[in-house]
Design a protein around this nucleic acid. Structure first.
Lengths: 335, 335
DNA sequence: ATAAAATATGAAAACGTTTTTATAAACATC
DNA sequence: GATGTTTATAAAAACGTTTTCATATTTTAT
């Protein structure tokens, strides 16, 4: 093997082709200034040596990378694949590459964003706290959040309107004729969980309906937590609600399973509705009615806005409304 | 706002602190050579300005990035989340960061790997063809493949032994007392699909059993393709097999659903076994017996080997054996 | 044949770091 | 108080690019 493991640089190509490095650079970036023969000879040498530009050198010079970063704090679970995929496609359409940074370490994340590892960042990562967000905001680095609301000169948010989602759930269930409701909470600190609850209850109040605390159960956005809460509720012997709104799909599924295992029929005795439209809602039995948050669309819009900010536009708040996807877990109440 | 959007560099910190840039660098990388007061003053300024080193500059100088790259051609589907997560954790344990490159474009992928965007690459990406793989192999860039077998000085493979998996499936079903078998193929060009088939049939042959072509169905590694093939088979009215081995879990699930919808009980009339142990096998009903390929383990071993190659070790082939995970879709044949 | 214009290439600076080496200042030794 | 030693900081080179500007060569016009 001729190459002793030292990496081929533009210098090697220049020496081998008998020209200067600037000439090589011109040949490769087809700045049309070279004699065709020279250019062809250089390209031939570059090909033979398998030369590929060092991106650290190039990006340093350029002050840009052509890469957008998606910063995730988790990747397991039904949500992330679809979201990443839509973001990937949107990046490609905009002439950018995508790199996904999977990390729970806020320091690393900040180092990558502020250290010009990417030209812009899409952030869905709870590890980043409010102080770091503040730094980012003041630094003028193009950033789009899809898990929180934060708008600044170069910061945008593309969020699902959870309050509206909660309202939609309430209206949908009311129209089916239900009167007595249960709510399964999400994570306590989660913004969306709170908004969904608020929207749901506000809309019920308009219809003159309130929900007592016994009918507000812990769910934690998790299947098991919801299952356990509902099971405990059933054991208590309290009267069944007509319908349950869970703060997300996983907890809706957990609740539905708990009813089934407790001998309560969904949807004949109790209706269940979730939120997010993860794939699993279609696969379980009964399939779960939910509110689709269109996260593919969210991804596309996030990339779009990010690119616009890179090109000078300023930040804004973009909210997306969900839509009810009726499935087997809900039906009109027989009165 | 004081910052006019120009990015803060080490020069700004140096000027503001009234020292040279080398002194700033020493302060930040705590080379212990500075007067404590000077160091503290510099760090204070750096903090105040929110200075973060430009990674392109740093990586260029260092000739390394501290980043390992995972190159995926797809991210949707049950497999990737779990794999990525295990790889992330293994990277962290080894002091590396992880970046996931989601791309179908072989040119971009090569540019990133050879352009020193990462210190090493884990590749699970069909977009990379044999010619590119050859370049990588000759270039001495540390690379681990988890979807194909390729060993070189700095190239390793960590693969599930699919032949052995096929054998295990056969032995398991034979021990349950089954006599008549069906096989559902994977993607035609897929190496593993072929090996699983070969191992399965070789082991059956040892028991004196052959499978006629009518009982080798198209599956394409997909739920729907398998469903359609099995449905077509049922419509043909041919006698049922005792057991079906599908080249992966998705097609096993598709097959199982086709039997159910065709009025054939799994496992009472037909057994079904898949391969991979994706999460869905546990969630469908009946749950699907499968061969667990331990891809979390595969991820950990891949990272481990990659790091070792970065540190001088040479490439090797590492094969992992699967293990049968019995679930509801298989049972002993009542004779 | 000479001046002017066009063409082809190369030298050098710059991007932001880190690191090696040099210099200046402070301190200790006799 | 001159000399040697330690301590603290700075200057400069290097990493691999791209790009601006200068120079050398060729062509065209007179």
């Amino acid at each position: 093997m001729s190459n002793e493991n030292r990496k081929i640089t533009i210098k090697d190509v220049a020496r081998e082709a008998g020209v200067s490095i600037s000439t090589v650079s011109n040949a490769l970036n087809n700045v049309n200034v070279l004699h065709p023969d020279t250019k062809e000879r250089i390209l031939e040498v570059a090909r033979r040596l398998n030369y590929t530009p060092n991106l650290n050198g190039r990006n340093l010079k350029a002050g840009a990378t052509g890469v957008l970063g998606l910063f995730l704090g988790a990747i397991r679970g039904p949500y992330y694949g679809e979201l990443s995929d839509s973001i990937y496609n949107a990046c490609k359409d905009n002439g950018y590459e995508l790199e996904i940074f999977l990390s729970y370490d806020a320091r690393h994340i900040m180092a990558n964003i502020m250290g010009h590892r990417v030209d812009g960042a899409i952030i869905l990562n709870g590890a980043i706290g409010s102080d770091q967000v503040e730094v980012l905001k003041n630094q003028g680095i193009p950033t789009v959040y899809i898990d929180r609301i934060l708008v600044g000169d170069k910061s945008s948010s593309v969020v699902f309107d959870s309050y509206n989602g909660g309202q939609k759930a309430a209206r949908f269930l009311l129209e089916l004729g239900h009167k007595k409701f249960m709510f399964i909470e999400g994570e306590k600190t989660n913004y969306d969980a709170g908004e969904r609850k608020k929207g749901f209850f506000d809309e019920l109040k308009k219809a003159g309906i309130t929900v007592s605390d016994d009918y507000i159960l812990r769910g934690e956005f998790e299947r098991k937590a919801a299952y356990d809460s509902v099971t405990e509720f059933l054991d208590s012997g309290k009267p069944l609600p007509d319908a349950v709104f869970a703060a997300n799909d996983l907890s809706a599924i957990g609740a539905s399973e708990a009813f089934r295992d407790g001998g309560v029929s969904v949807p004949d005795q109790v209706n269940v509705i979730g939120c997010d439209d993860i794939e699993l809602t279609r696969l379980v039995s009964p399939s779960i009615t939910t509110i689709r948050t269109f996260f593919e669309k969210q991804g596309v819009i996030a990339v779009d806005k990010l690119v616009k900010m890179i090109n000078g536009e300023s930040g804004e708040l973009i909210t997306l409304n969900g839509r009810i996807i009726p499935r087997e877990s809900t039906k009109a109440k027989d009165s």
